[in-house]
Every structure is written in structure tokens, then in C-alpha cells.
Design a protein around this nucleic acid. Structure first.
Lengths: 114, 114
DNA sequence: GACGAATATGTTGGCTGCCAATAGATAGCA
DNA sequence: TGCTATCTATTGGCAGCCAACATATTCGTC
């Protein structure tokens, strides 16, 4: 996977891994990596600023929680975040259909009764 | 479709619309637009520099052809271009599978016997 | 014969947004 | 005593697409 590939789709990834429940930043990175079978390795310089931005936008809410002396910042989806996630999924579908239609015009697209 | 969406996938689009046969720049833009059902509207400032770059890379070959007084620059795929297109398709598949797996983890993916 | 729209090719500057590099702290293990 | 994993965070850079601009031909139409 070439670097920079997630450009424009990062927000959706972050919102998606937070859908099942709250996670802290480091766990978000490993969750994305695990869910993508190792294909997507986000960097801290990518994730932490993005999480802050999403919180400023009201899509996430964060709380500090302590495990012993270690502090973790846990993020969870807000209602607006869930709506945004739904929009990201719709946009992703439109995006892949548009690019896919150009890249593979002869697609049989089975199961799609037009 | 948000602007900037094709970032990282432009080369594949250009190579793909040239697969059936040679086209000039303006026709390439309309072809992408038509194939994507209007979703992708590439700009000249995006396409012309990209075509030049792809020619420098040896993936395209261009010839000037004249229709009356008007001059058109027609691009066609080279062998290297066809190989690059195949790679772009493979990369696109890996990309959509990776993002899709994170975005829609519960995908039933019918027909895929794991 | 003038005007607009479509056809056709190109360049320049700028901005968005991800990444590499860097920094620093705790915890567990050998 | 180190080494690795866990955990958070900032800064600077730059790739790459786009908006805006510049220019010319062709065709319909008024």
C-alpha cells in the first residue's frame, strides 16, 4: 500500500473503528491495522491531529482514563459522529463506483439488476 | 464528489480510458466524465500535466494530428503503459479491499468462501 | 460579421492534508 | 541496566490536484 493512500478517507476510517465502542489513540491505530489485515499502517502524526480535529468538529468526544500511572485519552462517537460515519460510507460507495466504472468499464456487476 | 477525490488514482483513470484506443486530451476528459456517469470532472490543470508526466515515464506516446486548422495531440498506451494499467487495477483492488474492510467490517461478502 | 458556446491545449501559483522525524513518558521483561 | 512495547503529541515538508488564467479554432445563429 503506497503511503498517502488514505488521503481523503482517513476520517471515515477513524469513525468506523470507533463504532463498536470507545478506544484510545494507540488502540485506534492497531485496530485499523488489524481490520485491514495489515494493509493500513497509520502514523501518529496522522492520527492524533485528525482525532483532535474530529473532536473540534463535534464528531468525537474524549475522556482521560488512567491505568495505573499511565494516562489514556479515550475517544467515542457522538451522535453527529454516527451521522458523519453514515455519510462517509455513502461517499465511499459513490467514490469506488465512480473510479471503478472508469477503471473497469466492462464490469459485469452481477447482482445489480438495472 | 468532493474535489481532490481522485488524488492518487489519476494515472489509472487516464490509462484506463486510453485502453480502447488513442484519444486527445479534451476527449480524455469527456471520456472520464461519461464513464463515471458525470461523477468525475477532471480539470485541464489536472489532466495536461499528468499526460505529459505519463509520456515522460514512457507509459504514453503522443502524436499531433490535424483536423483542418486545429491541432490535436493524440495519446496512446505503450506496452509499459498497459503493464502499468494492470498494476493500477491490482493496486485499486487492494486499496478498496483495505479501506472497505475497515469501513464495513461486517460485510457478508457473499460468494467469498474463506 | 458579430457574438457566444463548444472544442482544444497549455501554465502558474497555491493550498490541503498526510507523513517523516522528533520528543518524551510509563511499564514489563531479561 | 537496557530494550521493547505502550501511549501521547508537535513540527516541518512536500506531493499532487485544482482554480484561474491565457490562447486559438470552429460552428451556429441572429
Amino acid at each position: 500500500m503506497k503511503a498517502d493512500a488514505v488521503r481523503g478517507h482517513l476520517d471515515g476510517l477513524l469513525l468506523a473503528v470507533l463504532e463498536p465502542g470507545p478506544l484510545h489513540g494507540y488502540a485506534i491505530i492497531t485496530a485499523v491495522q488489524r481490520r485491514s489485515a495489515g494493509a493500513l499502517e497509520l502514523r501518529t502524526g496522522t492520527v492524533y491531529p485528525a482525532l483532535n480535529r474530529l473532536e473540534r468538529l463535534g464528531l468525537l468526544r474524549s475522556t482521560w482514563d488512567s491505568v495505573g500511572e499511565r494516562r489514556r485519552r479515550c475517544y467515542e462517537l457522538t451522535d453527529a459522529g454516527r451521522r458523519a460515519l453514515a455519510e462517509e460510507r455513502t461517499a465511499w460507495r459513490a467514490f469506488t463506483e465512480a473510479i471503478g466504472a472508469v477503471l473497469n468499464p466492462a464490469d459485469a456487476r452481477p447482482g445489480h439488476a438495472s
